[in-house]
Nucleic acid binder design. Structure first.
Lengths: 198, 198
DNA sequence: CAAGCCACATACGTAGCGTATGTGAGATTT
DNA sequence: AAATCTCACATACGCTACGTATGTGGCTTG
């Protein structure tokens, strides 16, 4: 048992993050109580402050986890496409659909930026944004896109996608407006193309 | 002095909103203390709870005020353009530039959505969004744009613009990246056009 | 096996929100 | 015009919840 101590710590961190994820998604950052949250994890606030410093630190850890999951999911979708351009559209569509998840919305899209500041300044560096930028850069090299700044394009694309998702989720009939959002997204994204597509 | 009472109330509401605007912009919604804020306005929390119900109500009032100012400013910019399409681009550019104001960012873009929920559900109904949708609808009627859902297009445009602004503001050298953001915005927006423009 | 360390628990201080109640200056009534 | 009423705001209180300071039991190390 050389590393029993380390293992316990990892385990407790995971428990806290899991409980926090639930609490933040359910009640929002401000509404979530640290006492309740830690009790749900079978621990106390002591563990929390030792591991994450403060409430914001815990949110950062949760956001990081969800963001990572989103990025890898989007990558999967993008990889299935036949070319990079279709891949970019697929990634965007994937973001829109993922952002329909209340957990993603509440934690990553609403409380995340409000509490932690702009996504580009997050410790996690925002995997989603990074992935999109890489795809854009590939498309710029192959001259599929107009010569735009890759970071700017990535920001605009993800901004549009995530905002569209917020709209869809807030609407009365999400199932009906989702295709409209995706249509509009694809139309706007095609504005980045160097040549017109049908 | 038939309406002395009404006038006093309006005045006090204005004082509170002004103080709140400052406090929210400076310390964020969560960080702003109601006691401090009301003291700055020369009043107490009693006035605040009587007029706005709770802290969220006060934020809603502040957001409403700023949002209105933004919408009228954007309209001015749009009206100066030579046609509706240039007007839409001008509005978008105006949003990007306005969103560089820390007050707008902190209050309307970050805390607003986090505390009050999706902008389309705000009591103010989000004047900015509304204005953009009207412009889009005009362009749809004159068949300048592809047949997209006007609400979706408006959401995506403002989402892209505001997200671009957050990026610009968070960057090391805002003056340098601002034109990049505007370029990318115009490119993406042109994706909504029915026919390609040079 | 003994001494130390460390991850976590416990206990405390404090700030700030919302509510319940009080009050005095205008508005209303006769 | 005087008395009463109304209501916008002040005052006082309770409660929740964050962060910190201190304690402790079990692993770790020599």
């Amino acid at each position: 048992m050389a590393k029993r101590r380390q293992e316990m710590m990892e385990e407790n961190r995971a428990k806290l993050i899991a409980a926090a994820r639930k609490a933040f998604a359910d009640k929002g950052f401000a509404g979530a109580s640290m006492d309740e949250l830690t009790a749900d994890a079978g621990l106390t606030r002591g563990a929390l402050y030792h591991n994450f410093g403060d409430k914001r630190g815990l949110l950062a850890a949760v956001v990081n986890q969800i963001d990572g999951e989103m990025a890898s999911r989007a990558k999967e979708f993008g990889a299935r496409a036949e070319d990079d351009w279709q891949g970019l559209l697929a990634e965007g569509t994937a973001y829109i659909e993922m952002a329909l998840d209340p957990e993603v919305q509440r934690v990553v899209l609403l409380d995340g930026p409000a509490v932690l500041g702009d996504p580009s300044t997050w410790p996690s560096q925002n995997s989603c944004l990074h992935a999109t930028r890489l795809t854009v850069e590939r498309l710029l090299e192959s001259e599929v896109l107009k010569p735009v700044d890759p970071e700017a394009a990535a920001r605009l694309l993800s901004g549009a996608a995530l905002n569209a998702a917020l709209w869809v989720a807030a609407s009365d009939d999400p199932e009906e407006v989702l295709p409209k959002a995706i249509d509009a997204f694809r139309a706007m994204a095609s504005g980045l193309l160097a040549v017109t597509e049908p």
